[in-house]
């Protein structure tokens, strides 16, 4: 029996309404990636993480527990978790992340900021003030909660004098660039993905030789929602990598399965395995570059130890940074 959809969605939406994020995490876990980078607070242009990468270790842990409950009688008791979650943060108990995952996803955002600095981009960060963009509420069709969150984010940006945001993941890019303007009158924030920013920078030149073949996994959201297809390829080529393309690629890329993981974990895993097979058809134990935290988590899980699946920023930083 699948998990009770209403209670699983309800739990996350209750969190969003009450705690301004679907998975409440300690704020240092959200902002700690910026330690040592001396990024100024605020500014007209800010890096906007939406905490997507930072949330992933918690989501991985939560999904693992949900898999245990899926198809068991325990699934019937998810409603109790939702009941108590209204009083205290139950999700904190069901999503205790692995330290290695926290470190891995934190490092990715650090690398992205490092690449932007190397490219000579001037940007600030909202640190503790930054809010989750509301992606999950939008995808799950909980429009009232999503609208509230979208307005919170927009007000936050306006109050802090932000006019341009540089996003680090496809979902936040899509929500802030293509969805917010449809529900917020006069929305005037310029939204760019860091991949677009880096691709247009002449300052970013390889410092180290990286002779390696990399199979590219396009994110559905970047490729089909935002038409970000050439930029990651330009950057990998400029870095010195040789790109390999899987059977389904670019605008016809194959989903990683991640978007349904919170409700249908096992089904999601099957989709991920199908995608992994496409990689294995063209590479034997090779490297795969993802550009979305959800893709990376889903594909890593589906691949086991067979492939080196890393975020594209991890490969770029090896070539472009000291």
């Amino acid at each position: 029996m699948p998990l009770p959809i209403d209670d699983v969605i309800g739990l996350m939406i209750d969190n969003l309404k009450k705690r301004k994020t679907v998975f409440p995490i300690p704020y240092r876990r959200a902002t700690g990636w910026a330690d040592g980078l001396n990024i100024p607070e605020g500014g007209k242009t800010v890096i906007y993480t939406g905490s997507m990468y930072q949330l992933l270790p918690y989501m991985i842990a939560a999904v693992k527990n949900m898999e245990l409950v899926e198809d068991s009688f325990l699934g019937k008791f998810v409603f109790m978790g939702r009941f108590f979650n209204k009083m205290f943060n139950v999700s904190a108990f069901v999503s205790i992340p692995k330290k290695a995952d926290v470190k891995r996803y934190k490092q990715i955002v650090y690398n992205i900021a490092k690449l932007l600095k190397k490219a000579g981009v001037e940007f600030g960060y909202l640190y503790r003030k930054e809010l989750y963009a509301g992606t999950l509420a939008y995808d799950l069709g909980v429009d009232d909660a999503f609208r509230i969150q979208a307005k919170r984010v927009y007000n936050l940006l306006k109050e802090n004098g932000v006019s341009t945001v540089i996003t680090v993941d496809p979902h936040t890019t899509n929500i802030m660039r293509s969805v917010y303007p449809t529900i917020i009158d006069g929305y005037d924030i310029e939204v760019k993905s860091y991949l677009e920013v880096l691709a247009t920078s002449d300052n970013l030149q390889p410092l180290h030789s990286v002779e390696k073949e990399i199979t590219i996994h396009d994110s559905c959201v970047y490729a089909r929602h935002e038409s970000i297809i050439d930029e990651p390829r330009q950057l990998l080529k400029r870095a010195g990598y040789t790109i390999k393309e899987p059977k389904d690629n670019k605008a016809l890329t194959h989903c990683c399965g991640g978007p349904i993981e919170s409700i249908f974990p096992k089904m999601s895993h099957t989709i991920g395995k199908n995608r992994i097979q496409q990689f294995k058809d063209i590479t034997n134990g090779g490297a795969v570059a993802t550009m979305c935290p959800i893709c990376m988590a889903s594909l890593k899980k589906a691949s086991g130890d067979g492939l080196e699946i890393e975020d594209i920023s991890s490969f770029l930083v090896k070539a472009f940074c000291d």
């Binding site: 559905c220 399965g257 978007p259 349904i260 249908f264 089904m267």
Partner: peptide
């Protein structure tokens, strides 16, 4: 259930 199983990946739309 099926409505929530959609990945919203837009492969169909493409």
């Amino acid at each position: 259930n099926i409505i929530y199983q959609c990945l919203l990946c837009k492969m169909c739309e493409e």
